[in-house]
């Protein structure tokens, strides 16, 4: 009798869940530290500069988890669990983090979904990072009164998206060098 699994199953194994925990801790800590980076940089570089340099760090949970786990839903779970860890370790931003995390994770998930979950390489990862910029700017407007003209808001989305793209690529490259 020959037993072996040819195709990768979509079910999450204990290994996948443990990997999600690893990325959740890494991104949870990055998310927490990023608050300080963001406020400091915004004071010097303005809203666009700050979005470009720091926002992507808040989206990094999705590309990290998706590049490692490579299963449908991993981007959403990675970002969301990272945000939950952030909530549990530091009251900075409180439980709204989880709401941001869910929305950003969902947007990143779309990046992989449009490739029908066939590729987990640089291209979908970059897209996933970029897409997270949209809900981030939208939630900022609701919660932090960060509202501008449509033109300004578009610029912010692009800046946040580009930032997401850059850090998503870094996350993907960091995973590439692992032994597995």
């Amino acid at each position: 009798m020959s037993v072996g699994s040819r195709k990768r199953s979509v079910r999450y194994t204990g290994i996948d869940l443990a990997l999600l925990a690893v990325t959740a801790v890494v991104s949870g800590v990055i998310f927490t530290a990023n608050w300080t980076f963001y406020y400091v940089i915004e004071a010097f570089a303005g809203p666009i500069g700050a979005r470009l340099l720091t926002y992507g760090l808040w989206f990094i949970g999705a590309p990290l988890a998706a590049s490692l786990v490579r299963k449908p839903g991993s981007a959403l779970l990675g970002e969301f669990l990272g945000a939950l860890v952030e909530t549990l370790i530091a009251p900075q931003g409180g439980i709204t983090n989880a709401i941001y995390g869910f929305a950003q994770g969902l947007a990143s998930e779309v990046g992989y979904a449009v490739f029908l979950y066939r590729s987990w390489s640089l291209l979908p990862t970059a897209l996933a990072g970029f897409l997270a910029g949209i809900p981030a700017v939208a939630l900022d407007a609701i919660l932090f009164e960060v509202v501008g003209t449509p033109f300004e808001m578009t610029l912010w989305v692009v800046a946040a998206g580009l930032s997401g793209l850059i850090y998503a690529v870094i996350a993907n490259l960091a995973v590439k060098n692992l032994r597995r």
């Binding site: 290994i15 443990a18 990997l19 925990a21 690893v22 490692l68 960091a174 692992l178 032994r179 597995r180």
Partner: peptide, 9 residues
């Protein structure tokens, strides 16, 4: 991540 990956495995 390298150390985390092996641990998670």
């Amino acid at each position: 991540l390298s150390v985390g990956y092996e641990r998670a495995l």
